[in-house]
Write a protein that binds this DNA or RNA. Sequence first.
DNA 1: TCGCGACCTTGATCCAAATCAAAGAACGGA
DNA 2: TCCGTTCTTTGATTTGGATCAAGGTCGCGA
Lengths: 248, 248
Amino acid sequence: MPVLYASRNLTECGDCPIRHRAVCAHCEKDELAELDAIKYYRSFEAGQVLVWSGDHMDFVASVVSGVATLSQVMEDGRTQTVGMLFPSDFVGRPGRDRAPYNVVATTDLVMCCFRKKPFEELMARTHNIGVRLLEMTLDELDAAREWMLLLGRKTAREKIASLLVIIAQRDASLKMCVPKGKVVFDLPLTREAMADYLGLTLETVSRQISALRREGLVSLEGKRHVTVPDFDRLQEVSGDDADGGFLA
Amino acid sequence: MPVLYASRNLTECGDCPIRHRAVCAHCEKDELAELDAIKYYRSFEAGQVLVWSGDHMDFVASVVSGVATLSQVMEDGRTQTVGMLFPSDFVGRPGRDRAPYNVVATTDLVMCCFRKKPFEELMARTHNIGVRLLEMTLDELDAAREWMLLLGRKTAREKIASLLVIIAQRDASLKMCVPKGKVVFDLPLTREAMADYLGLTLETVSRQISALRREGLVSLEGKRHVTVPDFDRLQEVSGDDADGGFLA
DNA sequence: TCGCGACCTTGATCCAAATCAAAGAACGGA
DNA sequence: TCCGTTCTTTGATTTGGATCAAGGTCGCGA
């Protein structure tokens, strides 16, 4: 997993209110102007479903603030979250019509959307945007495969630690820094959403968090505010190589 | 999962000895000539490791014949296969230096390789190749996320059925048809390789295959040659929607 | 302020799959 | 042909996480 999202993915985008992992990272000035012309903002409340699996999707978008998840649901209701969208992340599939997953806001959420047709036209004319999109898609593929290792082979304890590490890293990257030593952040997910992402039940998530707390690896204030006194130690529990950064 | 790879992915590629899901699907004649100029073939034996995770990779490639897997390994040896490469599949990451996974031949294997530098230069000049690559990467992302659902939420029985369905589909697509009714194919994987892909142990794989056999859902001749008398019934056991084809 | 609903925690029990163990195929090489 | 190796099957036992069940906490609207 790339450790430093900051250097690669966070860039200014037109007049967007955040520095974000933008489709326009390498774009020229006039391309940015074109992107600005087809963009608009949308807000959602925590729990709201932005897109249902199978829906026609007529936009692509970046997350401005908040967190959303991508999830698959089986006929009998079993649910697996297959991705999390943090601020700066991109969602949408140029050239494809329908959404393959549910997209759900897990916190209040603001998206910067681009109408799909004009976006595709711009992409066809603009080499840079295609290159950037391929980069982002490869990043997501890496993340998905990393998660396959977690789902297939890690213990519940390692899964929880891994999730906390990921959230801490994404949170830190928004502040343009790398988590180290003592780290503090908020969980943007309910226990149930965590369970859906980790392939566990919510009871197991709760129990394992309690266990990590008992051992002093994390401490909680309320249900959501997390303090990690020693980030390295948590990372060891997660079962990942100390430094998987060769991908970057 | 796309059901019909055939129509979308299998195309002629220069003088390659197979019709394959090629990077050059939409290319012009002179682009094909350039691809031909930088390609070469390599053969591997079953069990051979083509690339180690972290290695420098100076080529990208398509599978001509045989099957390979992509796998991640934890420090303590736990292994998760994160992808299978069938004939026509592409492997390699333009713009990235190092391999993030082990690539292992599970059968005897022939690859059609392209040297990476010239491939990237060609890609920079050729819009079509970038578009095709993005398409293929999105397909792989879909497959990875489908597999996340399998790893996180399916039972051992459903996992085995899903794997058999996938292999049957890929095998059928090479023959330019869709599996239906009675289907026959060879398993290109040992029980252990299946276990690594499904997040199970090899004993559980063996037991579940025996169970499916006892129920008449499949029959085996030797260890590897599989006959599925009723493909639809197997697909039901796999837990997938009857028709997940909306992605296509 | 109370009451309700949404989340979370913890305990008791169960079960699917892992682990440990042993014994068959299948196959290639001496 | 026999032996050794690799792969596979099956059995016995254990166990991590699921399931079932009961309270606890928090925040919000009446």
